[in-house]
Write a protein that binds this DNA or RNA. Structure first.
Length: 853
RNA sequence: GCGGGUGUGGCGGAAUUGGUAGACGCGCCGGAUUCAAAAUCCGGUUUCUUCGGAAGUGUCGGUUCGAGUCCGACCACCCGCACCA
């Protein structure tokens, strides 16, 4: 038996594709374009199964669309800046650049062994100055367009390492390396005005109809639009008013206190000569770092002694508290508290003995007796206890009171967003330098475009505390571009989301002189199909959407949305094991006894955990390279595509990969093994074909129609099932030489073409074995003869009272009388209706008969 | 707490507008081949059954000739956000 020789075959076809430059593309106005993009990887060292799944999905789409005649752009590159390189540098004493480039080399080879249809000429690495110089220019353009500003902002500061920590590096309020308690520090940082596009980014979500609903909702919530009012409260004996934001101005008559954030300027000011308040503020800031604390946190407040005048109740005053539940980041950092209609305000009021006055009466309650207990009433109802608002509904009262505030000149309608501006400064070495010079005399001076790129210095000491760029002996010392006096470079680098916010455009034309050629970008963009992990559902996708708009504003592009279609993929999971001490074990170290008992090598008790996302720490990782070496890329790809729909989690199993491998060999035997009564290459369809051959021919057309539809809809698991059905039918027929030779060839060739996007190497090998000298990669997707899809006879179900009692074969579109007759004649139907009256017979043409008794 | 998703055999999963539930695969069982094993091939595989059938898509109820699919009320698990005023 000829076993499929994976290694030789796969590398052979990879070489052919490369040599014939099958996947190198150019803009071609005469062809319909299709841009397929998988989220580019961070070069962490080696590819993992998540990559294999991602790129198998993308390659399938790319090859399928190519076969359909599209001009397909399918590029690959590296998201190469980032913290892991710096960590590796510290641990292994290797320069981040060297580490990154070595990883890229390894991973590129691994990807190439998968036989992916990339145009490798377009490969980019974001750590290359040829790449990042363009984003430095973009930043300067954004600055000029007013989309960039600088302001003081809080960062996580590790006092032991003397460095800024990313949020992910803060674990339970402590630095992940030093375990030191993290402090909040204020640093001047650069921000991109994403909030300027908040409304547009929100409303445009409606048009992203090829995005998963889930992602759209997440983006929607992240932007978090709310409508309310801004109201200025007069502070007694002070000139400056206290501005609050509220979505419930209708409850103003129920206000009983004011609360401001611990970081509110007023609180800071008062703390200057009130040590108890300062202490309280410090306690609030400590608590904010721990998420668990927030969940259970008690409402705490500190009475400042100041009071506000009630804006509509003459003579009433409202005490001002500093409260731990008011966020400086949202609204104005100050609120008025209406305890009856907000749960937090109610908790707070009960704790500090503040009045609780209901001003909205629930529809089913009595206005004179309604009182709020432990639960605030947040629904709609009639306004009460509110002077001129009484009797109005909540929405009516909102409109009325806002009008009133406007007339008084103390308030107005306001829209608020949860979305914050994007802070892009990172106090890191391994990132793109921010092209700014700080001059004592001139202030902030952009680096002139002619002097770009600002290149990272190579000779750094990665082990210094703090930012190595800042500690570099010479790099930051330059002359001011404006006045030529000694000045200093900005030593912060960009957030790495900066690079991934425009790489899709760079792929369209990665030329030296500019970020991308405008005509090329406008030909290829938007990306028709973007594929990647759900973990990027918010930030990366939102930043890219913003960036594209910002690029438009600066004249780079005429485009708003970068990704027309999006697919998110599920995680790769694998079984987990723990020993008696709760330590994770490698599955290979677990011994399974015949009775199913699990032990480790030393006979200790082992428990099987649930299937979890593959991760090094859980010791349940399978290395794709091993799998590809043993079974080949096609087998791995088939396994990834077979059973689970792409957006669901996929369980890795040994038997699953074995099953895929079996099918690869089965397909190979289909074309390689005699006896096979198959017609010669190029044989025309004979006029007379046998009945079984005609059935097979019909099945081929049916399968092509179904598979095409499945592939277009991302139902890859169903497409695989269809192809398997067809190949099973071919196997059933292949021994019988009854004039089906042509149909067998037709079916085999069609299978070879259809598996092209799924198992490209095997497809070429089959095609070749079938006597072709051309490539599947250049072969058009099969077309469907619609006439072949119409069946002459149809099997329809016969029910009695809705229960299946048999089936009948009738001619397509047979008249109702004859269908009813043959249905009623069924023995099994007869036995059920015998002696009973047939009340009704329901006939749905070509589908079902239901006899009602 | 708010928002979203998912519940179908031992497992992954299929089932056009309501119209033959369990496609395809994994696993398992039986058989063939083999000195033996691997590989391969053939057959079976929702459950119960008095072998006539009966029950069955998380639970309870409803609409319908007919419900996995539609409606109402719940339950469980998963994901996202979370003191957002």
């Amino acid at each position: 038996m000829s076993r499929y020789n994976v290694k030789e075959t796969e590398s052979k076809w990879q070489a052919v594709w490369a040599e014939q430059r099958c996947f190198e593309v150019e803009e071609d106005p005469d062809k319909k374009k299709y841009y397929v993009l998988e989220m580019f990887p961070y070069p962490s060292g080696r590819i993992h199964m998540g990559h294999v799944r991602n790129y198998s999905l993308g390659d399938l789409v790319a090859r399928f669309r190519r076969a359909q005649g599209y001009n397909v752009l399918h590029p690959m590159g590296w998201d190469a800046f980032g913290l892991p390189a710096e960590n590796a540098a510290k641990e292994n004493n290797v320069h981040p650049a060297k580490w990154t480039h070595a990883n890229i080399a390894t991973m590129r080879d691994q990807l190439k062994s998968m036989g992916l249809s990339y145009d490798w000429r377009r490969e980019i690495a974001t750590c290359d100055p040829e790449y990042y110089q363009h984003e430095q220019k973009m930043f300067l353009d954004f600055l000029e367009a007013g989309l960039v500003y600088r302001k003081e902002s809080w960062v996580n500061w590790d006092p032991v390492e003397n460095t800024v920590l990313a949020n992910e590096q803060v674990i339970d309020g402590r630095g992940w390396r030093s375990s030191a308690e993290v402090e909040k520090r204020k640093l001047a940082q650069w921000f991109l005005k994403i909030t300027a596009y908040a409304d547009e980014l929100l409303s445009a979500i409606d048009d992203l109809d090829r995005w998963p609903e889930r992602v759209r909702i997440m983006q929607h919530n992240w932007i978090g639009k709310s409508e309310g009012a801004k109201i200025a409260f007069k502070i007694i004996d002070r000139d400056q008013p206290l501005n609050v934001y509220t979505t419930r101005p209708d409850t103003i008559f129920g206000a009983s206190f004011m609360a401001i954030s611990a970081n509110h300027p007023l609180a800071q000011e008062l703390a200057a000569d009130n040590s108890k308040l300062a202490e309280f503020i410090a306690a609030c800031n400590r608590m904010a770092t721990s998420e668990a604390a927030i969940e259970t946190a008690e409402k705490l407040g500190f009475d400042t002694g100041l009071k506000c005048a009630h804006p509509v109740l003459e003579g009433e005053t409202l005490p001002i508290y500093v409260a731990n539940f008011v966020l400086m980041d949202y609204g104005t950092g100050a609120i008025f508290g209406c305890p009856a209609h907000d749960q937090r305000d109610l908790d707070f009021a009960r704790k500090y003995g503040l009045p609780v006055t209901a001003v909205v009466c629930p529809p089913d309650a009595d206005a004179s007796s309604f009182r709020v207990g432990d639960e605030a009433f947040t629904g709609d109802g009639a306004i009460i206890n509110s002077g001129f608002l009484n009797g109005l509904s909540v929405p009516e009262a909102k409109t009325a009171i806002i009008k009133h505030f406007e007339d008084m000149g103390v308030g107005e309608k306001q829209v608020n967003f949860r979305l914050r501006d994007w802070g892009v400064s990172r106090q890191r070495y391994w990132g793109c330098p921010i092209p700014i010079v700080h001059c004592k005399d001139c202030g902030i001076v952009p680096v002139p475009a002619a002097e770009l790129p600002v290149v990272l210095p190579e000779d750094i000491d990665i082990n210094v505390a703090g930012n190595p760029l800042d500690k570099h002996p010479t790099w930051k010392h330059v002359n001011c571009p404006s006045c030529a006096k000694p000045a200093q470079r900005e030593t912060d680098t960009f957030d790495t989301f900066f690079e991934s916010s425009w790489y899709f455009a760079r792929f369209c034309a990665p030329v030296k002189e500019e970020a991308f050629t405008r005509s090329a970008a406008e030909y290829w963009l938007p990306v028709d199909q973007y594929i990647g992990g759900i973990e990027h559902a918010v930030l990366h996708l939102l930043y890219s959407r913003f960036f594209t708009r910002a690029l438009k504003e600066c004249g780079y592009l005429d485009l708003e949305e970068p990704f027309a279609g999006l697919q998110t993929q599920g995680m790769i999971c694998h079984e987990t094991y723990k020993d008696a001490n709760g330590k994770w074990l490698f599955p290979t170290d677990v011994v399974i006894a015949e009775n199913g008992d699990l032990t480790d090598a030393k006979g200790g008790v082992v428990t099987r955990g649930r299937s979890e996302k593959m991760s090094k720490s859980k010791r349940n990782v399978i290395d794709p390279e091993e799998i590809i070496k043993t079974y080949g890329a096609d087998t791995a790809r088939l396994f990834m595509l077979s059973d689970s729909p792409p957006d669901r989690d996929l369980d890795w199993t040994d038997s699953g990969i074995e099953g895929a491998w079996r099918y690869v060999n089965r397909l190979w035997r289909l074309v390689s093994e005699p006896p096979f009564a198959r017609a010669e290459t190029g044989t025309a369809r004979p006029d007379n074909v046998s009945a079984s051959a005609l059935d097979l021919e019909r099945l081929v057309h049916k399968t092509v129609a179904a598979v095409t539809d499945d592939l277009e809809k991302f139902h890859f698991n169903k497409a695989v099932a269809r192809i398997r059905e067809l190949s099973n039918a071919v196997e059933d027929l292949k021994g019988s030489d009854d004039g089906s030779a042509w149909a067998l060839r037709f079916a085999s060739e069609t299978i070879a073409i259809m598996i092209g996007p799924l198992m490209p190497h095997l497809a070429e090998e089959m095609w070749h074995a079938l006597g072709h000298t051309s490539l599947i990669a250049d072969t058009a997707w099969p077309s469907v003869n619609a006439g072949m899809l119409i069946e002459d006879t149809i099997t329809i179900a016969v029910q009695v009272n809705g229960k299946l009692r048999g089936t009948i074969d009738v001619a397509k579109d047979a008249d109702k009388e004859s269908v009813e007759q043959s249905a009623l004649m069924l023995d099994n139907v007869q036995s059920f209706i015998e002696g009973k009256e047939v009340r009704k017979v329901i006939i749905v043409p070509n589908k079902i008969v239901n006899v009602v008794i």
